[in-house]
Each structure stands twice: as structure tokens, then as C-alpha cells.
Design a protein around this nucleic acid. Structure first.
Lengths: 291, 291
DNA sequence: ATATGATATAGGTTTTATCTATAATGAACT
DNA sequence: AGTTCATTATAGATAAAACCTATATCATAT
């Protein structure tokens, strides 16, 4: 039985004529007659009493009419809700990201409607998530904060980066990252998680004695590395081709997991899931897939 | 949108998997997926959020789920009512008829289920209708009795009937029905409406002086006419072919209207209408159609 | 008689639903 | 890391349903 059949039945019941009801329903009279007959055969009971001068509901038809009406009511309710949903503009999603991820992701998702961007530090972003000042954030996982949920996006290798003409580059052991004294280890300031991670990595490798220079932007560091014998660590997405720098892949030993973090009970779950799916399938991440 | 689609949606919503829901609905997974997608396209809103490990309702899907459920509830109510209706045996219809109609109609409708017959006089039948001892009756119209309704069935010509070898037959004027004294006018006793009608016809034609013989059965009269010089009046359906009698058609001047009479507010309207339609299309009445 | 308006039927066409086979992806398990 | 098993999506072909036009039948009104 089709919902359209119910329209036919209700029209015929109200009008008392198959021919006129067919006109109202914009179909031919035989079509309407046949469809109604099929419903009657399905039910095994006649809904209408046919007469050469018209039709009227049978006793059974009278008793089930209200059910048909209620079905139609619910159908129109569904359509009304759908229309409302369609016409309602998507709420704006405020997406934050750490500085070492934002420039490599944001440019590729500017086509998503009602999405605004914000770049900040992990600490700040988590605070804003909790204060409902942003709806989601691209952060390095894990983020173990009550009320916050995360979905992993990609596993990003770290590269050791040096100028191609850096004479010490070939001597660096990528396991220990033991640097000759002529090299400084340029890292981001510690408010950036990337800087923090790098610092802990240095400590882990007992490179405390390295000369360390703290910058606030990967791009600054990139330029400094290119024009010196200094080295740095960069996430994979920061890699440029033909930029005079050498990249040594430290993965899988050294990497970070970037994920989408959001408040568990947000009203925007659906949009955030869409965003997650969208980011996850970005071309620029095709090499960094995680399960 | 098909009602089956709603089953698909509800199954998928409950189970959380298109593949499993398809199995439950006895269709293939692609069919279910496509049907649901079509509903979503129709509504312009996604009902489900697809995931590689299954599906779940979208926010919109959640809000309209109850409407879909209510539709399905009403559908099953309709089916329940239909089943009840089907399994309920048709109530018995008690059909009466006057003696001059019963033998020509009853034999052709014995195939109707739950129909019982009764032959009596007009007065008796009307009394039984009013007392709910019968549900409908074949009577000569008009029947103007409060509470009773009638539907015409056929217009039945009267024939003047004489033996083929009756020497006076050719001399009878069918307008005046003036009989030679050698002929008697055989009529049914007056409790039969046919007898009554015939008697009034005689009076109308000032044939009071005719010799009149009252019988209680048309068949008795038929035989008496065949073996005498007497004549009689018969309704068209009583005519036999090759029975040695001559029939002179008195219509349209003399005829009777037979109809189906029943109590206006009976519970059996539908069955009585069916009966009416059935009788009206009997082959033996094909020459006697009325509008 | 004739025309009008009603439902039913028949035959052919178009639209819709369905199936099978396959792709693409993620999760779980060696 | 590869394999298997689960999932949904897609494509092409087939089956089923809906629909239309033309026509039949009947009742009614002119």
C-alpha cells in the first residue's frame, strides 16, 4: 500500500466520486479506481460501495477511515518537520585548532557552511570548549578532560628538519637526535603543545645540553632552519617540497595523533561528525590515515 | 513514499544496521538503503547518519520517528480491523417475497450465502419487516409505510392469458378487457396484491359483471386457463413458452413495479444493496429493466 | 433517442522497486 | 602488516507496480 493510495481513498471518501477524486489527485479515473481496488483486495474488504452514480464508504470503510486520516496527518506532520528542518539555517560551528595544525587543515574546509575558525593553544582551546566559546577543536590526542570527547583524525609523523646544505645534517642520529654543538634545536615556545612535546622529547633523549631557541611560529622556524645550521622538528603536514630543506621521517617512533575534540553533550553532534568525516577524507591527509 | 519504506525505516532505526534490517524485511541491503535514501531525498533531510560500522538516527530522524511509528500503528490497526471483518460471518438476511414474484426470483439467488427465503402476502411481509422478523422483501411498489424504504427492481408487464385454442381469445379487447359471457376471469384471492390489482382493474373496466373465480395459486389458474375458455392476468415473469397458452402484452398500460423493501435504518444496508444489485442483473430480468 | 456522467476493463507505456554483483571502507583478528 | 568479516554505497539488469488512453457498461437527465 502506498501513501498515495491513502490520499486517493480519503479524496474519494470525501467527494463521493472516483472520477472527481481522480481529478483532484491529478490522475486518471481508472488509475484511482484500480489503486483503491488493490487496497481493498489487500485488506480483503470493500472500502467503498460502487454505484453507477457514484461511490460511498462501506460500513468497514467508515470504521477505518479515521485510521487512514491519522496516517495522512502524520505524513503531513513529517513533511512539515522536514520543511522546518530544511529552512532552518545550520547553526554556526566554531572550530578551534592548535597553531601547528590550523594552517594545514583550515584552508581545505573553508567550503563548509557556517564554520568559523579560531587558532589558539591547547590550553586555551580546552577552556573555550568547556566554556562553550567554541564547539570543537583540532587537538593533539589524547585529551583527557572530563566532559570532552574526541575522535581521532590522523596520525602525523614528526620530521627532523634541516637545511639541505646543512653540513651536520647527515651526522644526526634520528633515534637519539644527538646534535653536534654547532646546531641549535629550534622549538616552539612551550605554550604550544608541539613545543612541549618537542621539549619532552629532548629531555627524553637527554639533549638538555642542546642549544635551544624558542620561537612562536613554525614558519619563523622554517626560515631560520633554512638559513642556518640549526634543526627543528615538524609535523608531517608542515612539510614543503623543494624548499631547500631535508626532512627525516621519525615515525613511527615520533608522531602525534590529531583528533577532533568536542563537548560530549553538544547539540551539534551531527555537524561535528560531518566535519570529522570531511576532514578525515581530505586529500592532503591521504597518506596519514588512522583507523 | 510507500508504507513499506516506513517499515524499513523503523527496522533500521531499531536495529541500527541497514544490512540487518534488510534481512528482517526480507529484501536485499541495497534495496533497503536505496529506499531509505529516496525517502530522505523526498524530505530533503537525512534520517540516518551512516557509519562504516552501522547507522543511527539523525536528530531529525529522532524527532520524526514517533510519527512513522504512529503511521505503522494505524496501518496495523487497519489490517486488524480488516481481518476481523473478514472472519466475521455475514449475518443471515431473511428475504420475503409475494407469492407472484417469489417463484420467479428465489431460484436464481440461492447461491447468495446466508440468505433465507420466505413467501407470504404483502400485508404479512410488511408486518414482518416492521417487526424485524424479516430484513427485506420483494413487493409491488409503491409501498408507502413509515420506516420502510424501497429500491425499484423491475417493471413487469401484465399479460392477458388464454388457451391457444380458446375460441373467444381473439375477440377480447385488451384495452377494455371486455369478456364474452362464456369466459370467466380467474383471479387470485384478494389477500394477494396481484389479485387485488386485478380486481381493481376489472372494476376500472366495469367488468363487474364478469364471472370471476378466485384461486390461491397462479399455477392452479394457469392449468385452469389451459383447459377452459377462461382467461386470467399474469405478470410477465410467470410466462411459459410452448405451454399452449397465448399471452397478450398489456404493457405499458398495465404493469406492476417490483422492488426491494426494507427498514430504513437496518444494519444490513450493505448486504441488501448487494442483493438489490444481484437481483437487478439477473438474466431472467434482462427484458424488464427499469431506470 | 441522445447526451452526460459514473465506474470498470483492456492493452501498452512509464516509473519504481528489487536483485545480483561489486566497490570501498572500517574493525577485528591473526 | 595482512586477512577476514562486517558495514554502506554504487551500477546494471530485471521484475513489479503505477499510470494513461481508449473503450465498455450502465444510470440518469434532457
Amino acid at each position: 500500500m502506498n501513501l498515495r493510495d491513502i490520499e486517493y481513498i480519503l479524496a474519494a471518501a470525501e467527494i463521493g466520486s472516483f472520477a472527481k477524486a481522480a481529478r483532484v489527485c491529478h490522475i486518471s479515473q481508472p488509475s484511482l479506481s484500480i489503486q483503491i481496488k488493490k487496497v481493498e483486495e489487500l485488506l480483503g474488504c470493500a472500502l467503498f460501495i460502487r454505484d453507477k452514480k457514484g461511490v460511498r464508504l462501506s460500513e468497514f470503510g467508515e470504521t477505518v477511515l479515521s485510521y487512514f486520516k491519522e496516517i495522512q496527518d502524520n505524513v503531513s506532520k513529517i513533511h512539515t518537520m522536514a520543511q522546518k528542518q530544511r529552512s532552518e539555517p545550520l547553526p554556526t560551528i566554531r572550530l578551534g585548532a592548535i597553531a601547528t595544525a590550523a594552517p594545514y587543515i583550515f584552508p581545505y574546509i573553508t567550503d563548509i557552511e557556517n564554520l568559523v575558525f579560531e587558532e589558539s593553544t591547547t590550553v586555551e582551546l580546552i577552556k573555550k570548549l568547556l566554556d562553550d566559546e567554541i564547539d570543537a577543536a583540532l587537538l593533539a590526542l589524547p585529551v583527557k578532560v572530563p566532559l570532552l570527547t574526541s575522535m581521532s583524525l590522523y596520525k602525523e609523523p614528526f620530521y627532523l628538519v634541516a637545511a639541505q646544505n646543512n653540513p651536520y645534517a647527515q651526522t644526526i642520529d634520528v633515534e637519539t637526535i644527538a646534535l653536534p654543538p654547532e646546531c641549535r634545536f629550534l622549538v616552539l615556545s612551550e605554550e604550544h603543545c608541539m613545543g612541549e612535546q618537542t621539549m619532552s622529547l629532548c629531555k627524553l633523549n637527554r639533549n638538555n645540553n642542546h642549544k635551544i631557541f624558542k620561537a612562536t611560529s613554525l614558519e619563523t622556524i622554517r626560515h631560520m632552519v633554512a638559513t642556518s645550521n640549526d634543526i627543528t622538528l615538524m609535523p608531517a603536514l608542515a612539510r614543503r617540497h623543494n624548499d631547500g630543506l631535508s626532512y627525516y621521517d621519525l615515525s613511527p617512533r615520533y608522531h602525534r595523533d590529531i583528533g577532533l575534540v568536542y563537548k560530549a553533550r553538544t547539540r551539534h553532534t551531527e555537524q561535528i561528525h560531518n566535519l570529522h568525516a570531511k576532514v578525515k577524507t581530505l586529500d592532503c591527509l591521504s597518506e596519514l590515515k588512522t583507523n
